[in-house]
Design a protein around this nucleic acid. Structure first.
Lengths: 204, 204, 204, 204
DNA sequence: CATGAATGAGACTTCATTCAT
DNA sequence: CATGAATGAAGTCTCATTCAT
């Protein structure tokens, strides 16, 4: 399964269910209006609870923001991990790109991804979370690229793998920007670019 | 020199000087706080004028936002144009990346770039401006790549140039994200990645 | 008792009590300063609540204005209805005139009546409300005048009743203007004029 | 000629021309937006001069308001005087009513008339001006009604004339209210009412 | 005489947050 | 545990008035 829990099951403790409900609502509102413009009242309404109650589960609006940031990072990492487990990297990237256009709440939202990246400029906590997550991604990619091909790795030498991992992350980021700026562009048009890029990326 | 005039001279008609003053201040505040969180009072203070006066020069806060967006796009295009006129593409990209870390107000600000990309999701006017700007960039890049080498082009066949132009834009976007998320990373560390990427990009 | 409830009881649901409180305060402020010059802060203070809270009960300042307009029209109609139920029309008109001088908040306020009439020139919603209310008053008067005397009507033929109803409304309006422009004039001085006017009005 | 100077001639002193220009503009704006909502900037634009310049000719916005009030009263009196000089009182009243519907700037504007009546409630200066003007009108009407018929009077005894003058003023006021509230009502529909009213008014 | 840039107060409105119920 | 009424600060914007030019 990809990403965080979208709808908690019966056995989850009550508090956790409530937190989940709030975060689902908040994500929806943040995507729709942005972190700042979404109001606690918006979120409360989307979560079908009173505004006051949310303060039992989150200290602050900004605590909710941080939690959403954390979730988005999680979701992003989950998508990245899909890449290595896939036999066809290009197809997998294209699939990720498609998922970004689909506004699926269970998947990292690229507009939020950009907004929280910008927010990192002003909020050290967010900045730290982002850097940490990127570091984890980088390490995972590098590990995969250096791993032997018989272990489903790419079998690249470490010094090369490092650069390629970085480059893949750049393109990943770039695709997120493109998904946001050109939501109507046909993903199929990206296929060629991605395939050529990937073919060089995996070649020793 | 890259980008627009940061602070207009005294010979400009007064109104233009004021508009400039306001836009300089607004850009500073938007970078510092974000489009939404920066208040008209913030901007007024930075511009050293009363908040009311700004309404003589801009209809709205959102008119100021649009003007800043337009300027950022301009600045971005100016930087892209630097790329073709340069003999060493990799060095030029690296230089751009460095400029993003430098918080130079005369240069496109990557945090703003991300925030306005996210804003395009909610504001059709901004979305249109970004798409238009991207289209212009794409065409310029493609023209440069297909132009003959004796004319300082790359001499690539059109069908290949198109994909390479897109790929370059992806990486450019990705670098902007990286600049925002990792402002402390040493640009020199990017050199290798960029150089390898470029060497393949310009090779027929 | 004439007119609407001035201050709702504690048994009403809270929201209704608050709406009432706001409207009472608003009416007071509008009478004192005019629709436009009365500020939301004025009203809030008179209602002894924070300005922000009023927006829980009314969308707008202009929603409050409309509500007050509606109430004034209601109060006016209630006073007109007093006329037919009265045995002595002249005395009843004089009584109405006296009530206008008394600044009783439960009774149509003539200054507000004039101001909202003027406002109808600029606001189609208000215009429609006034025209509708006038039409209802006209029909009620006409019905009363044509009704048989044994049914407490005036027993006038329809074609005459119509003109007399209009004329009565003119004089009623004229009295409102006079009440506003000459608040210190002794109502007794009006007695003769009114009595003669009435004696001719009810005569076939 | 009826009413105040609408457009001053060549020989008028400069200051007077300017005052006139301002007052014409102000009247237009006040009619359009109301005393309060019309801004000095609106007026300045309508008068085709700078906002600052108006302060050379009027101390205040409220001085302009007072001047307009004075003019409206003048215009009203001019219309009342038309009544006595006319052979056919009913026709003359109807004609006045028609002029109110016509938005002729040279004629008393009924919406302003109502608004300034309401304003008299709050501003003692305006109240005094209105009462004074009404008194002058009353005296003129009474004089006309008591004057001998050979001198174009109505030849009524003084005690009766007094009441009739008041009644005529009420109806006049009432018509102003009607003109404002029912600008689309056909004036011809008023003919009957007015004629019957007048026939009784002038009958000893 | 004339302009219009500039200000400061104040208008309407929104919103995160608290707290009595 | 839950509500939603209540507040106060803050935000955007308008406007009468002044004054340097």
């Amino acid at each position: 399964m990809i990403g965080h829990v979208v709808c908690a099951g019966k056995d989850t403790p009550r508090a956790e269910v409530q937190r989940e409900r709030i975060l689902c609502a908040a994500q929806k509102c943040f995507i729709e209006h942005g972190f700042h413009a979404a109001s606690m009242a918006n979120i409360a309404e989307a979560a079908q609870m009173s505004a006051g109650l949310m303060y039992r589960y989150f200290e602050n609006k900004s605590a909710i923001v941080r939690a959403i940031v954390e979730r988005q990072l999680q979701d992003g990492r989950a998508q990245i991990e899909q890449l290595h487990s896939s036999a066809d990297l290009a197809a997998s990237i294209l699939q990720t790109y498609r998922s970004w256009l689909g506004r699926d709440p269970a998947v990292m939202n690229p507009a939020l991804y950009l907004e929280m990246s910008a927010a990192a400029t002003r909020d050290p906590q967010i900045a730290a979370a982002l850097q940490d997550s990127d570091e984890r991604i980088f390490e995972a990619l590098q590990a995969w690229m250096t791993r032997d091909r018989v272990d489903r790795g790419l079998g690249l030498p470490p010094d090369i793998a490092s650069g390629r991992a970085r480059l893949l992350m750049q393109v990943w980021n770039g695709l997120a920007v493109t998904a946001v700026r050109h939501p109507d562009r046909d993903p199929a048009a990206m296929r060629d670019v991605i395939e050529k890029f990937v073919s060089r990326l995996v070649t020793p």
